[in-house]
Amino acid sequence: MFTPEGPTLRELAVQAMSSVEHGYDLLAPKFDHTPFRTSGRLLGSVAEALRPLGPFSDGLDLCCGTGAGTDVLTRLCRRSVTGLDFSAGMLDVARRNAPAGGPDVAWVRGDARALPFAPAFDLVVSFGAFGHFLPRELPGLFGQVHSVLRPGGRFAFPVLAPPRPSGLGYWTLLGFDTVMRVRNALWRPPFVMYYRAFRLGDVLAELGRAGFEVELRTLPEFGRRADGSPRARVVLARRTAGETAGDGPGQPAAGSVNS
């Protein structure tokens, strides 16, 4: 499951018993050698789905980690790209991995639940981060994203079809979530990471309540399941173009933050 360059089981155990922030600080140097990193195939598929919707000027990679999604934005945005994460260790790796050339890239340490930006972006993406948010946090999270988008701006992220109960993947994810719930009931600080808590129906409803117009587009590279449903889709949430800066349920921040 892991490459020789990835973390050892002992290192993973230490990280899992830490807070989310400190755990990712510890994991950061080896994160790109784990299966937790979003695959290049998925990143490329989302980039191709977004390309016809551009051109985009300024993009934000929400919970950017080591910068895989930020790299996607540098191919889509003409003027600037910002990567935001609360782990200093992950941002250090992202900064070292940043591609040369292209739009200006800034790295900001911050919390996605309290974004330190004015409405300055026309594209926000996020890859693989939503398991770190409890369902009750989604309204505030989506409100924050809404508040930093310009009118007409888009919030995009991929979603994968959940595994069937008849498959090993279903029971693996169920077992992981169960272990994490027991761990968090017995140990502090908590480490929030649940694979099965981010339910598409609830997510679409909360995006609508936050003021987004939402559509789903199939990522055809991943094919379809036996019942004909797509294996992977991208959620495209659009801030209504008729709004003015500061409208909507999100709380606009006081200003922008430099890298």
Rank of each mutant, 00 (worst) to 15 (best):
L134N: 04
P135K: 08
R136H: 14
R136V: 13
E137W: 01
L141T: 11
F142W: 13
G143I: 06
G143L: 08
V145T: 11
V145L: 04
H146E: 15
S147V: 12
S147Q: 04
V148M: 12
V148Q: 05
R150S: 02
R150Q: 11
P151A: 03
G152W: 03
G152H: 06
G152L: 05
G152R: 08
G153E: 06
R154F: 00
R154A: 11
R154I: 15
F155E: 07
F155I: 04
A156D: 13
A156K: 13
P158V: 08
P158F: 10
P163H: 04
P163W: 04
P165L: 10
S166R: 11
S166Y: 00
Y170R: 11
W171P: 07
W171D: 09
L173C: 07
L173R: 08
L174V: 13
L174S: 10
T178P: 00
T178D: 01
M180G: 00
R181W: 02
R181Y: 00
V182P: 01
R183D: 05
A185K: 03
A185E: 03
L186Q: 00
P189C: 02
F191R: 02
F191H: 14
V192D: 04
V192W: 03
M193L: 14
Y194I: 12
Y195K: 14
F198S: 11
F198R: 00
R199K: 15
R199A: 13
L200P: 04
G201Y: 11
D202M: 07
D202P: 04
A205D: 13
E206K: 10
L207K: 09
L207F: 10
R209W: 01
G211Y: 11
F212R: 12
